[in-house]
Amino acid sequence: MSGSRNAKQIIKNIIFRILLGVVLLFYMFPLLWMVISSFKTQADNMSVPPVIIFQPTVQNYINVISDNPFLQYTFNSFYVAIFATGLALVFGLPVAYYIARFKCKKLAIAILLSRMMPGISYLVPWFILFSRLRLVGTYTGLIFTHLTVTLPLVIWIMIGFFEDIPKSYEEAAFLDGASDLTCFFRIMLPLVKPGLVSSGILTFIQSWNTFMYSVVMANHNTQTLPVAVFNFLSYGGIDWGGLTAAATLITLPVLVLALLIQRHLVSGLTFGGIKG
């Protein structure tokens, strides 16, 4: 009896392992394939059946970096993402604090609504307005459109963090004669530091990944990495090594950052929905 039960247990365990393996394979395969292909020559990439053992080459990376102003695009991406994140924090934190403290439901719903709006419904009016202001193609225009993604995100995540702080902290500060501002900067901000870090990183990732806004709002000199890589597509079917090398290069920073904040990632991506 106990024997058959044990056997059943073992079979169950094996099935479990297999399922786990399948899941892992499915999720890792495209990423692994991207990295592997980036070290292959064009002939190896085109061969059918696919080659597993091959002579790795870094030529693809050298080509990508030397044939294109890749560093310029990387700089653009960083520049835009840092500003879009920084400004989102500057504008977003007070709003989040306000909503959390005064339970301003209407504003919260407005922000949720902004999350629901399709990106393109910002893009069309902003594009027209920015055209009139001659801001299309500039960093300013680009950062501003990225803000429509990052700002609501920061606010929504930070509301949760501010709500977690007990009111007594604040009251104590007011009793000591602190003003609103000092209270906010001296007491609240340090308390939500972990939230600050994770929402900052998450917004950075979002801005880094943003594609549609950048295609329209950036020009040759200000385009970000996703746009630049999209433009490699002409070689579609021609230079897979170069494409995957470029893809690897833009994904790498994001993956590293994501690992840093993995704990907060899910709640951030669902826009704090899980907390509520």
Binding site: N209, P226, A246
Partner: peptide
């Protein structure tokens, strides 16, 4: 997968 840059993923 959910944080990787969508454009890069699409190429793969």
């Amino acid at each position: 997968p959910m944080v990787a840059t969508p454009v890069a993923i699409s190429l793969v």
